[in-house]
Nucleic acid binder design. Structure first.
Length: 339
DNA sequence: GTGCCGGC
DNA sequence: GCCGGCACG
């Protein structure tokens, strides 16, 4: 995707592939903000403007939520969307940097529009995506109406998704960010979105990473994987100038431990202890109930059609595709039977 | 993101 | 049938 955020582990890991059909009957925790930002970046008009309703409120993310949730349920996959809570203080400089990138992209978007360069306009517009509280609340309301559970993470959604996967409440976490592995997710799915062929009925493939295999292949522990992340840089620390994935791996492979490795890399280790602690012991909650219910058709139509001007027959068609066997809450012959 | 239409 | 490209909100 365009916005490469999180730790850059791509050059070190060798992801496997998984057919979507292999996810059938399995619960998957979706990094909601990660998905919503992807929708906002992708679901735009030619000039870069996102979809909006008659009141000018952005709806692109709702299009994504509707179709993504429906297509997963239709395939027998049980999605649970995990939303970010309050970001860690350690993330503030990353967030500031992202805000600046957005402002710069906004200016470039305006310039490209003025110049009539639609291709650049759309590209730059994709980088300006913002999520408001109202947009998040809208997405959550649609999910609830669809009978699909969502979880409010205390802080990082990825950390919460990783926790749920570790506990076995879900089979895997889905995010484009490798940070999810540092947070201890045993299984990570990437590229859930880039499966265009999926919509043509194919059994598309997604990237599949197991933290156990990653560490085994690299011959390191999970803490050493975190150390690699810290050396390269994560959303929670800057990283060491001049050290990329290769050099970080080389340093860590000497197995000298956290302090000695960081010292050798020329940084003060003590300042980075909070980053390690964040990855090893992130804020999580057990306050969630995973239950997949039959969609409340009238509610979905009210939210999207009445509330946001979606085409009624379009939404109805999506609803018609959803598994109908899903009963109301508490009944055991539910979609629970799939998972 | 995904459906759908119309061209081959 | 398959595939590119537009439409959707």
């Amino acid at each position: 995707m365009l916005e490469a955020v999180g730790v850059k582990l791509r050059d070190l890991v060798h992801p496997g592939k998984l057919h979507l059909s292999e996810l059938k009957g399995r619960r998957v925790a979706l990094d909601a903000y990660n998905m919503l930002y992807q929708f906002l970046a992708t679901i735009r008009q030619a000039d870069g403007h996102p979809f909006t309703d008659a009141e000018g409120r952005v709806t692109s993310h709702l299009v994504g939520v509707l179709y993504r949730t429906a297509s997963m349920l239709e395939r027998g996959v049980l999605p649970v969307w995990v939303f970010d809570g309050k970001p860690s203080d350690l993330k503030s400089s990353t967030l500031r940097a992202r805000a600046m990138v957005k402002e710069k992209a906004q200016r470039a978007w305006n310039e490209a529009l003025a110049a009539g360069d639609l291709e650049t306009a759309r590209k730059k517009a994709a980088q300006t995506s913002r999520l408001t509280r109202e947009m998040v609340a809208d997405a959550q309301a649609v999910l609830s109406a669809m009978g699909t559970p969502w979880v409010q993470a205390p802080s990082e959604g990825e950390a919460q998704a990783a926790f749920m996967a570790e506990k076995g409440d879900v089979w895997a976490a889905a995010s484009e960010d490798y940070d999810t592995l540092l947070f201890g997710a045993p299984r990570l799915l990437r590229g859930l979105g880039s499966a265009r062929s999926a919509s043509r009925g194919d059994d598309a493939e997604v990237e599949f990473l197991e933290v156990g295999k990653v560490t085994q292949e690299l011959g390191i522990s999970r803490e050493e994987l975190i150390l690699i992340g810290v050396l390269i840089g994560t959303d929670f620390n800057e990283g060491v100038p001049g050290i990329g994935p290769k050099k970080a791996m080389k340093l860590v492979a000497e197995h000298q431990g956290w302090e000695a490795t960081l010292q050798k890399a020329g940084v003060d280790p003590t300042g980075l202890d909070p980053v390690r602690d964040l990855f090893l012991h992130p804020a999580t909650t057990e306050d969630y109930h995973l239950q997949w219910k039959a969609p409340d058709t009238a509610k979905v139509l009210e939210l999207l059609v009445t509330g946001h001007g979606f085409g009624a027959d379009r939404v109805q068609k999506v609803l018609d595709r959803l598994p109908k066997s899903a009963p109301s809450s508490g009944v055991q012959t539910s979609l629970e039977a799939f998972g």
